[in-house]
Simulated scan of single mutants.
Amino acid sequence: MTDFFFPVPIEAELDPAVHRARLVAEAEREGLLDVAYRTLDTPVGSLLLAATGRGLVKVAFDRQDHDAVLLALAAEISPRILRAPSRLDAVTRQLDEYFTGQRRDFDVPLDFRLARGFRLAVLEHLPEISYGHTESYAQVAAAAGSPKAVRAVGTACALNPLPVVVPCHRVVRSDGSYGQYAGGEEAKRTLLTMEAA
């Protein structure tokens, strides 16, 4: 007969939350966790949040297929991805505050490695658009240093890896219509209406 040693009560070992917490702690201790993620229910649907050691690297809407987003992150950043909600506590708290009207901008480290060149220049400008205000694609193109690159601004906003936190929803067409949005037109309308209140 073989003896088994359980360092914690067997009931705790079988608890998925306890097991997951131990996995996360072990992965962090061994330097094996490159991307931590969690999901968050919000007024614009479920958001996938992912962070590296540098900061928040991805925010994705449910309609973008969270599993596909995680696979893309594994290919683009590292396959060492683990659901580790506590690593995203700060951004989760700030998003909760934002959606309840207690926060107007975000103060969390951002990892922009998924954007380069002009797209990055656009993303760096977006937080300068004040809460409750909008800018046209043409205005953003000029602010990013390429006044004729209006379509490129649209592409940069569509491919924004950090929507909501980096507020591409505040960019609209010159006629005031919403334009495209990764979370869908209804999500963009919800965000702009909330900020206008």
Rank of each mutant, 00 (worst) to 15 (best):
F4D: 04
F6L: 14
P9W: 04
P9A: 15
I10R: 11
I10H: 05
D15K: 03
P16N: 11
A17L: 07
A17I: 04
A21F: 03
A25Q: 13
D34W: 03
T42D: 07
T42V: 10
G45W: 00
A51Y: 09
A60G: 12
Q64L: 11
H66A: 07
L71D: 13
A72V: 01
L73P: 05
L73F: 02
L73V: 00
A75L: 06
A75S: 09
P79H: 01
P79F: 02
R83I: 01
R83G: 03
R87V: 07
D96P: 00
T100S: 13
Q102P: 00
R103N: 06
D105S: 14
P109W: 01
L110I: 11
L110A: 01
R113G: 07
L114R: 14
A115D: 09
E124Y: 02
E124A: 07
L126N: 14
S130C: 05
Y131S: 06
Y131E: 08
G132K: 10
H133F: 15
H133P: 00
T134P: 04
E135D: 00
Y137L: 02
A138C: 06
K148S: 15
G154E: 13
L159Q: 15
P163H: 07
V164H: 08
V166S: 10
P167F: 09
R170D: 12
R173G: 02
D175K: 09
G176V: 02
A182D: 11
G183A: 08
K188V: 14
R189I: 10
T190D: 05
